[in-house]
Structures are given as C-alpha cells and as structure tokens.
Amino acid sequence: MNTSRKGQVGWIIGAILIMFYALLPVAWILSLSFKAGDDINNQKFWPTNWSFENYDIVFSSDLFTTALRNSVGISLIATFISVVLAMLAAYAVARLEFPGKSLILGVALAITVFPIIAIATPLFNLWRTIGLYDTWLGLIIPYLSFSLPLSIYVLSAFFREIPWEMEQAAQVDGATAWQAFRKVIVPLAAPGVFTAAILTFFAIWNDFIFGITLTSSEAARPVPAALAFFSGASQFAQPTAPIAAASVVVTIPVIILVLAFQQKIVAGLTNGAVKG
C-alpha cells in the first residue's frame, strides 16, 4: 500500500515536471503575444498590460491571412487525398498477396527516413520548369509523397486487426468487394483513419522546408513560411510579438483538431465482432 502510494506520488511529480517542460515555451509564446508595443522588453514573464494589439496586426496583414488560407486549403486537400490513397494502399498491403508487396513496404519506409531537404532543390528546379512552382498543387504533391508512407503503415496495422470473417460475411451477404470495404472495413478502421488523418495534417501544417523553397508569393505560401517574412507594425520594429501572436493563431486549429478527433480515436470498436 505504502509503496504504491509512493509510486503514485512519484508518477504525479514526474508528470508535472514533463508537462512544465513541454508547456513552458507555449505559455511563453502566449504571454509574448499579449505584450503590446515595447512591452516585450519588460523583463517579466507576463505582460504588464494584456493587449490584443498583436492579433490586430496579424489579422490586418494580408501576408498572414492569405498564408492562413493557403495553409488550411493545402493541408486539408493533401490530408484528404493522402488518407484516401493510404486507405486503399494499406488495405491491399494488409489483405492481398501480390508480387512486390515487401518492396512497396520497404520503399515506403525508406521514404520516411529520406531527408526532405535533399530533394528541396531538385524539386524547386523541376517545378519551375513544368510550371508547378508557387502553386497549391506544387506543394500538395510533395506533401503526399512524404505523408503516405506513415499513413499506410498506421492504417495497414488497423486493417490487419479486423478479422477476415467480417469481409467474408459481407461478401456472402451480397456485398461487392468495394461495398464490403466501404460499409464494413472502413467504419471498423475509423479510429485508424482518424489517427492517420491527424498525423498527416500535423506534418503538413507544420512543414517549413517545402513551404519556403517551393513558393515565392502569396499565391501558395503557407503560414510557417510566411512567418519568416513577417514584419511588425512598422518596418523597423522587431516583429517578435506579432510572430508570437501568429504562432498562437496557427496552433489553435491543431489543438481543436486534437480535441475533436480524440473522441473518435476510441479503440475497442471491434469488440463484439467476434466472440470476446
């Protein structure tokens, strides 16, 4: 009893330390974003006067709002395409025996360890030649190629968990392979689909390298890259506080997404499918 309580206390202290370590920078950015004008030099953690001035600056700047629109659009489209493709690929990997299956998995794994920066320059030249430079599509394509392997791995693990009998039962009940996939497999793999979607969305939302190398104007530049071009209220002020405010704005959708999907990522959905 005594030892377990001791252990519990240890766990709680550990958890607090880790949360403090992880959340301190977030709190810092949050407090910075509320410091108006020269208040960032107040030598204190909290602002002397809480002000929304930086948020005004951020939202009145075309640079940020168009970048936000680009980010949201590109991330959603790329995530959607990536998850749909990954679902089909993962299903094939999990269910079918075909020549080159291990090769596909191997290449997928290789792509995830490939340094992104290594292909940034070749892509830059290639995209400029074929006219994809500084377009949404020009960003979506490389995002897809880097997010697919992870999604395929996550989803094929989920598909493998679903008993074969589910599909066979559906087929006997009169479903085509596609109907069995859509009406039985996908709903059962929903937790996996949401997990893959979130991971993919984060990776794309936070990407900086492609964002900065493959864009040159507001036509396609996403938020992380746009922040680098940010200027403050005047040309001469360091835009630290507005950048902090922009960062907070960019973080909010991510937090909302996590909270929204968290409820969907409920394992144990397959309970009761077979005799438990």
Binding site: P163, E165, M166, Q168, A169, A170, Q171, V172, D173, G174, A175, T176, V184, P187, L188, A190, L269, T270, N271, G272, A273, V274, K275
Partner: peptide, 19 residues
C-alpha cells in the same frame, strides 16, 4: 463471386458487424 451465389452463411465466430 460469393454474392452471386445467393447463399447465406453463419460463421464460427459469428462475424457480426460491431458498428
């Protein structure tokens, strides 16, 4: 294909759709 044979089957582990 199974769906064109118009047979129905009860599986050993029932294979009910949990969702």
């Amino acid at each position: 294909a199974p769906r064109d044979r118009n047979l129905s089957m009860v599986f050993q582990n029932y294979a009910l759709y949990p969702h």
